[in-house]
Computed example of a mutant assay.
Amino acid sequence: MSRAFVFPGQGSQAVGMGKDLADAFQTARDVFGEVDQALSQDLSKIMFEGPEDQLILTENAQPALMAVSLAVVRVLEKDGGMDLGKACALVAGHSLGEYSALAAAGAFSLADTAKLLKIRGQAMQKAVPVGQGAMAALLGLDLEAARAVADEAAQGEVCTAANDNAPGQVVVSGAKAAVERALVIAKEKGAKRAVLLPVSAPFHCALMQPAADAMAEALGNVTISAPVVPLVANVTAAQVSDPDEIRRLLVEQVTGAVRWRESVLAMKEAGITGLVELGSGKVLGGLVRRIDKSLSGSSINTPQDIETFLESL
């Protein structure tokens, strides 16, 4: 089977995340310790014990999700003898998961990735005052219909399709009033459901430009190596390996749409038959068959999952 490793984005965090890995593997404990040290913060304590209101803060959730993903990767490599370059043909990640994917493929050091995601989380939170932006899931509308809803709802404000997750599952993002108008318009246009998402900022839209500027500066100060396998980038749904191009696309990604459905289809086109999600939750593994029934999707986030996967290699 030709396999891609994919990495979850925000929303997959939960109190207790990574604790079973830390209990079972010294390698996982080392990853969490290295992230804590890089951030000068006891992030692993928040991950394992909460409180939830601290964990869901964007600046904590983003490095926390990356830490669990990288703990899974390192355990597979160090304890399981897996060679990532041979175990998968491509990597991809949903939004912040793109950083996890790049770290897994050797483009970033673990410490740099943790610091970048801390900066990214803080910058995204600061870009728009709380309560002025919003995101909403439009269920039952395809991308073109969702874009039409966003355009009609904008009325001079920012409102745009931000995440194309799967057929009939598109997220719009922008100014709160515009997104609220989109909820009404979407239902009029036949959406099965249109719901506001419990997020603290309007990600992946033009309102995030201050955060994109912050990431351009931060990414300019870190070393990016060519990944051992290509990344399928969120904003282009195409493969990339060149470090300068990766840097540019990561900046663009802050304000650009996450083209996840197209990314999965591009992976299929490249010969991928199965997507394996590494890290917290099972969101991406679950989306695979909604995007294309011929693809297999699975998730690895527990010691048992790791054992089962290693046996399949």
Rank of each mutant, 00 (worst) to 15 (best):
L219S: 11
P230F: 02
L231R: 05
V264Q: 09
K268R: 10
E277I: 13
A218K: 06
V232W: 02
G279N: 01
E269N: 06
E252W: 00
I291G: 04
L207Q: 10
E277N: 12
I246G: 02
R259D: 03
V235Y: 02
P227I: 08
I246Y: 13
I246S: 00
R259T: 12
A226G: 08
L250P: 02
G271C: 02
S280T: 06
K268L: 12
V264E: 09
T236S: 12
A226Y: 07
H204G: 10
A214W: 01
W260M: 04
A266E: 15
A218Q: 09
G256V: 12
Q253M: 15
A216W: 00
D244T: 07
E252N: 10
V222P: 09
I272R: 00
A218R: 08
V254G: 11
A218L: 14
V232T: 13
R259Q: 14
G285L: 07
G281V: 14
T302D: 00
K282Q: 10
E245L: 11
P243H: 14
L284C: 01
P198L: 09
T302Y: 04
V288Y: 01
D244L: 11
D292G: 03
G256L: 09
M208D: 05
L295T: 12
N301I: 05
N221A: 15
W260Y: 10
V283K: 04
L284S: 05
R248L: 09
A257E: 05
S225K: 14
A266L: 03
P210W: 08
V228N: 11
V254L: 09
N234F: 12
R290S: 03
G256I: 08
L196E: 06
L219D: 02
T255Y: 07
S263T: 15
V251M: 14
E277L: 13
S299V: 10
L295F: 04
L249T: 05
R248I: 00
L278S: 08
R290P: 04
I291N: 00
P243I: 12
Q239P: 06
V258K: 11
D292N: 01
A257G: 11
D213R: 01
R247M: 09
L197W: 02
M267N: 06
S200F: 10
I300F: 06
D292W: 03
K293H: 13
A201E: 00
S299E: 11
S225E: 14
K293W: 07
S280P: 08
E262D: 15
R259H: 10
P202A: 14
D292M: 07
G279Q: 09
E269W: 00
L196R: 09
V232G: 04
M215D: 03
I246V: 12
L278D: 10
P227K: 07
E217A: 07
G297N: 05
D242K: 07
W260K: 04
K282E: 04
G286D: 03
T236Y: 03
S294V: 06
S200W: 03
L265Y: 08
L250T: 13
T255S: 15
L295K: 01
P210K: 05
I224S: 03
D244P: 00
E269K: 11
W260S: 12
E252A: 15
D244M: 08
K293G: 15
I300N: 01
R247E: 05
N234I: 04
V283Q: 00
L231Q: 01
A212C: 03
V228H: 02
R261W: 07
A257K: 10
L275Y: 03
L219I: 03
E277A: 14
